Computed example of a mutant assay.
Amino acid sequence: MNVKKLIKSFGYALEGIWASFKQQNMRIHLTSALIVVVAGLLTGLSTVEWLIIILMIALVIGAEMINSSIESVVDLASPTFHPLAKQAKDIAAGAVLIFAITSVVIGLIIFVPKWF
């Protein structure tokens, strides 16, 4: 194993994470995640509930990062409008929406019984 290559690959990954923070939708997801974490701390979630919340946050953020990378590649490959480019971007955005809606539903299932 080449340690220098490994360290460089972690550096590239961190650059990608940092670049994703500049995206408006990522900032919305991160703000939502922060609100959920604060709510979880105030609510007193169980270990299993925390695991589910953390997993959902990671899935939404990861999906948003994949969506952003797909959008970048599509924009590079197809700088002018093309129906397939639009379809690829729409499908990727739709995947993020499905994860986000699912995370809201799971959040409601976890939080609502504790609050009411």
Results as ranks from 00 to 15, higher is better:
N2G: 08
N2S: 10
V3A: 08
V3K: 05
V3W: 12
K4M: 05
K5E: 10
L6C: 01
L6E: 08
K8Q: 08
K8I: 10
K8L: 13
F10T: 00
G11V: 02
E15W: 00
G16M: 00
G16L: 00
I17E: 05
I17R: 07
W18L: 06
A19L: 05
F21Y: 04
K22I: 01
Q24Y: 09
N25I: 01
M26V: 02
R27G: 03
S32R: 09
S32A: 06
S32Q: 10
A33E: 02
A33M: 03
L34T: 09
L34D: 00
I35W: 08
I35Q: 06
I35F: 07
V36A: 07
V36M: 06
V37P: 03
V38C: 01
A39W: 02
G40R: 12
G40V: 03
G40N: 08
L41T: 05
L42Q: 03
L42N: 02
L42S: 06
L45K: 10
S46C: 07
S46A: 07
T47V: 11
T47Q: 11
V48W: 07
E49W: 03
W50L: 06
I52M: 08
I53M: 13
L55V: 05
M56C: 12
M56R: 03
A58R: 02
A58C: 08
L59W: 04
L59R: 11
L59F: 08
V60F: 08
I61W: 08
I61Q: 06
G62W: 07
A63R: 09
M65Y: 01
I66S: 10
N67D: 09
N67L: 07
N67P: 05
S68L: 07
S68R: 13
I70S: 10
I70L: 13
E71N: 14
V73I: 13
V73C: 07
V74M: 13
L76T: 12
A77P: 02
S78F: 09
T80S: 12
H82N: 14
P83V: 10
A85H: 07
A85G: 15
A85S: 15
Q87F: 15
Q87P: 01
Q87S: 15
K89G: 14
I91M: 09
A92T: 11
A92M: 08
A92E: 00
A93P: 02
A93D: 11
A93S: 15
G94V: 03
G94N: 10
A95H: 13
L97Q: 05
L97G: 12
I98S: 04
I98E: 00
T102V: 14
T102M: 15
S103N: 13
S103E: 12
V104D: 10
V105L: 15
V105N: 06
I106L: 11
G107R: 11
G107A: 12
L108K: 01
L108Y: 13
I109N: 14
I109L: 14
I109K: 10
I110F: 04
I110T: 13
I110G: 10
F111D: 15
V112Y: 06
V112D: 09
V112R: 00
V112Q: 04
K114A: 14
F116R: 11
F116V: 14
F116Q: 13
